[in-house]
Design a protein around this nucleic acid. Sequence first.
DNA 1: ATTCCCTTTGTTATCGTTAACTTTCAAACC
DNA 2: GGTTTGAAAGTTAACGATAACAAAGGGAAT
Lengths: 335, 335
Amino acid sequence: MAAILDVAKLAGVSKSTVSHVLNNTRFVSSETQRKVKEAAEALHYQPSVVARSLKVKTTKSLGMIVTSTDNPFYAEIISAAQKYCHEIGYDLILCNTEKNPIKTKSYIQVLSQRQVDGILVLCTTYDDVTFSTIAGQKKLPMVVLDSGPTVKYIDKIQDHSYRGGLIATEHLINLGHTRIAHIGGPENKLPAKQRFDGYCQALRDASLPINRDLVIESDLECEGGAAAIKKLLSLREPPSAVFVANDVMAMAAISVASQMGLRIPEDLSIVGYDNISLSEYFNPPLTTVNQHISELAELAVKTLIKRILGSSETETVVMIEPNLVVRQSTCEFKA
Amino acid sequence: MAAILDVAKLAGVSKSTVSHVLNNTRFVSSETQRKVKEAAEALHYQPSVVARSLKVKTTKSLGMIVTSTDNPFYAEIISAAQKYCHEIGYDLILCNTEKNPIKTKSYIQVLSQRQVDGILVLCTTYDDVTFSTIAGQKKLPMVVLDSGPTVKYIDKIQDHSYRGGLIATEHLINLGHTRIAHIGGPENKLPAKQRFDGYCQALRDASLPINRDLVIESDLECEGGAAAIKKLLSLREPPSAVFVANDVMAMAAISVASQMGLRIPEDLSIVGYDNISLSEYFNPPLTTVNQHISELAELAVKTLIKRILGSSETETVVMIEPNLVVRQSTCEFKA
DNA sequence: ATTCCCTTTGTTATCGTTAACTTTCAAACC
DNA sequence: GGTTTGAAAGTTAACGATAACAAAGGGAAT
């Protein structure tokens, strides 16, 4: 591949002139500019970002660490983040930890060796203090999306899950339900905890009892949702509605409830959480809490970039307000 | 960040010795090894892959160009590809073209400037001859997954969509259906065309007529699937079964058919294609053609690496045999 | 004691950029 | 006419690794 020196020779100028015309970084006469551009064109010259990175000590690349890239919720965040990155001239290196702390550690090392300018951390289970240590030690900007406690050196963007849990449950209450179950995520994950708290608050506000038999802590995966709904439906007095902490569990729940002969929503109302794009086309279309996935992702990238560009304000945590989108998996309670 | 020279100084040896012990690339006395390792440890030394890349002219990174990263089928391929890449020490730079040729071009340029060692192209609509030209010109290894005609310089991995279309349709025929519709993908995409061909062949084999009213060319997205099923169901003589060219369209089809009062599968059997992980938990669980997504992705990466490592055999196209997984969205035809 | 060889480690050019520091040259000024 | 000034472009030292080449030193062979 042609290097800058080749272009310089062909154009009959020095390397630095080529660099300057291509980067518009100092005045060059239009005649020289023309020659340089023609030479670059003729040689199909592509500047080497690796050489450039070495010199300027910045790679214009970001790492993204995710527990699972094929879960639709994560996939949509990745998609939105990547899209925004490209718009502002950054590239994204994708890392999938599969909930494995060893892999997580390995990815952090890889990204650090690749000298990414910053890291986006999405809902990983790696112990957050370690992240903080690394962020502080290496001065590697990080922002956490969705999960993880507030921690030093790391900004955080998440949806306001407490509000989400609240409005989801209120919706069910307003429909006349009183036995409302909850299938939650791992309670050591903050958003899951907050959704549960919102659920509890809504019940309390309505003077409804919080029945521990009706809340199940699960894993945010289909399998967990399926297992949880089976448990709930085998109760002596099963719920008439359930608020599920994410869409894929909600879908699985609907699927197995249907298999068991229940009609959704007539016999059982279900509200999910996330508003992944498939929820609109589920059977029935899913009533769910909209997390504003792309806004979330975009804001995370923006925040990270700001940090990379040198902002040194203390860590911020931003919460995005969710809203309920009512579709057909919920309806009025009929005794 | 500490550089190799810092380590060398602290250990009291030369840069090359440090490099050699860290890379195990020539004999170093164990005493010296110890000193070097200790120094590296003490300084939290992380070698710079950008400097290394500049010197060795290889980045150990791959680009992945995809039309849409949040479609579950693509998301699962990306996930599998990324996972395998990491296992063999490569990193993945993700690029999402959103079917936009301008973006595609821009990504190719970005990846080339980043000196990725190779590119994985997934089902993009960018004109394939251009890809071929670039692959040949820049000597940038590429492999195409899923879509795109066979073209010079580029290996291709895909599932055997003709067989998939055949077995899906045979399944419906064996269940006694005779009015079998097809919702296909864009016919300029080879796998879509092949699935349709398989469908036709199965009908012919069973001496069933191929009814043009019953086949609809769509876009492989939910919206398209929804529109297509509406059209089919408004026919004077609607089908009793439909073979849909991918899972998300099949899901959308089931969803709207249900909304219109049809029971799935009693009133309408539907078979999808892909076997995305959600299909198992759809309502009802989807009968679908299993594309062996992770094998596909892994084989693509393997093929690309082989090319990168210098294999110069002529372009290969590998087809992976699909299989049918029968779940609950299909059943016997009852008049 | 000189030479040779082998083991172990050091020196240095290089990869392709960027940018600080020079240089060149012509017009303008006194 | 010589100095100043300023515009335009050139020289070169990094950036951080790798690896080809070189060298030092000790033991064995002559």
